[in-house]
Structure formats: structure tokens, C-alpha cells
Design a protein around this nucleic acid. Structure first.
Lengths: 143, 143
DNA sequence: TCTTGTATTGAAAATCATTTTCATTTACAA
DNA sequence: TTGTAAATGAAAATGATTTTCAATACAAGA
């Protein structure tokens, strides 16, 4: 899907879920839908203000929350402890995150499910969720 | 290794690395080395004060930092965004964390290395680190 | 055993990410 | 248009973590 269509698609999904379409939301959606990076709220705030100067940081947090509810973005945990947000792709994907620039690649990876089932057998836990994230340096930052 | 020996071993490693043996450090080491849970700094602080009432939260943070440097504890990222600390076992282990009580199980799991190599080939990234954490409900909390 | 230098400590303040509060503004249904 | 609930942003509150700094206590040497 072209980036522009993706943006319209997200805005449409917001509307369809009963949310109003506002300038701040549009500015945030345009940024996040168009980026291949895992963005922190403060980065979105800084860039977003170039588009819509009255944007508030609180609105960034609130809009990201909505987008996460709708499954349009996913939250990733970066090693510094802050959260970053990344546009969600189809299905459950694993992440490869550049520790220098925050660029993110997805990989379908091996299915973790069989492992989860074996672990359930062995431990008696009911496994609900898994995280697999790889961290590394992307080719661009590597030079 | 028995818990008591583990505690002495950690204290000895601290001393061997040039750190002094102090009451607060002993109290913290006793707690963390003996626990199967991923503990948050504040939990360690609260329990530790029963042993050593003058304990400060700052010292908890500083001691955990030292123990992490020495590879004796590992930091895990819980879904609420806070950090928790867990005694490190031999080698690289993957974690299964109970989302209700914080209890942690380790599992050797499948080796992620081959996957990491394949992803390096495919993406050109240099993969440095990986996280694999499963979240679930432990048998005790399941009832 | 008794200094003494320095690592360590804890209280308080600072910082940083995130959340809450609330008065004002805005989208949009009627 | 207009009324109203949703949304906004500034400021304050919160919670985790870090920094600062004067007081304390470990441990090496007299």
C-alpha cells in the first residue's frame, strides 16, 4: 500500500471507530504511518510541531494509545527503557532494531509457537505472549 | 549450589572485584540471590529494610548495577515499563515470566543463534543481542 | 589495636518519561 | 447554524531513576 493510502486508511479506521478527525491526529498519523523507524513520543512531538505547531506532547501519547488499540502501531521496548512506536505490519512479526538509528526491520522468523507449546508442557505455565527482538547495527550505521 | 553458598559466592565476587563488603550490600545480595522472582528495585528496598532498616533506595539501584556488571543478575523488562532484576543462571537463558506474580522460569530453549545468522544474511545487519521472553500465567496463579 | 584515606551510604533534590486534571477549543450530528 | 460531547494543550502530578553532597564506615597500614 502506498504511504498516502496507508495514512488515509488509518484516518478512516479512526473515524470508523468513533473517533473524530482532528489536525493533531492527522499530523501524528502522517508521521508514524510514513516512517520505518521506531519513534519515541518526544520525536513524534518534535517532528509533528513542524507540521502543526500547536501540537501538545500529551496528544501524542493519547493518539499513540488509540492507534495501538486499533492495532495500527505496535509498541517496542528499547534498551534505554523508553517506549517507541512502530507501524504494525500484517500478523505477528519479529523485530530487528538498529541500536544506533532506531531503524526497524521485520522478519517473519521461525515460528515461536511450537517452542511455546513445549515450554507450557514442561512448566505448567499458560503462555500468553512472546517477545522476540533482535538488536544490531544496520548497514547504514555500520560504516 | 545451595542458596547460602550462592550468597557467599556473590559477596566474594564483589570483594574480588575491589568492592567493599557492606551491610546494605549483604542485605541486597541475600534477597536477590535467594529469589526465584524478578524483583523490582522498590520491592528489594521494601524487603531489604526488614533486614537492614537504614537501607536507602539509591543503594539498591547502585548495588544492582554492580551485580549486573559482574553478570550475577540480569535485567528483565516487564510489560509495565519498569525494570526487574533476576539472578543470572549459567549461560544465556530465555525467560518465562508470570504476569501475575513475577515468578520466573528459565528455559534453555532453542538456540536463537542460527536464526540470528540467517537474519544477518538477509538484512545486512550485525546482530548484537537478542531478547526472547515468554509471558504467561504460572500454575500457582492459574487457580 | 588504632588511625586514616577513600569507597560507600542515604537524604534530598534533580531529571525524565508518562499520566492526570481542567478549562478551553473544536468536530460534527442534528 | 448551533449544541454538545470529544478532543486539546498547559500545567501540575506521578513514578522511576539519577545526581549531588555531606556524613559514615570499611579495610589497609601504622
Amino acid at each position: 500500500m502506498a504511504t498516502r493510502d496507508l495514512i488515509e486508511n488509518w484516518l478512516e479506521q479512526l473515524r470508523a471507530s468513533g473517533y473524530r478527525l482532528t489536525e493533531p491526529r492527522r499530523a501524528i498519523v502522517e508521521l508514524v504511518a510514513a516512517s520505518n523507524h521506531a519513534l519515541s513520543p518526544i520525536e513524534i512531538y518534535d517532528s509533528g510541531r513542524r507540521e502543526y505547531p500547536r501540537l501538545g506532547l500529551v496528544t501524542v501519547y493519547r493518539t499513540l494509545e488509540r492507534l495501538e488499540e486499533l492495532g495500527l502501531v505496535q509498541r517496542v521496548h528499547s534498551s534505554d527503557g523508553c517506549h517507541r512506536y512502530l507501524r504494525a505490519f500484517e500478523g505477528h512479526q519479529h523485530l530487528l532494531i538498529c541500536t544506533r538509528c532506531g531503524r526497524v526491520e521485520m522478519f517473519a522468523g521461525d515460528d515461536i509457537e511450537p517452542l511455546a507449546r513445549r515450554v507450557e508442557q514442561a512448566t505448567g505455565y499458560e503462555v500468553q505472549e512472546h517477545w522476540l527482538q533482535l538488536f544490531g547495527v544496520c548497514p547504514r550505521c555500520h560504516r
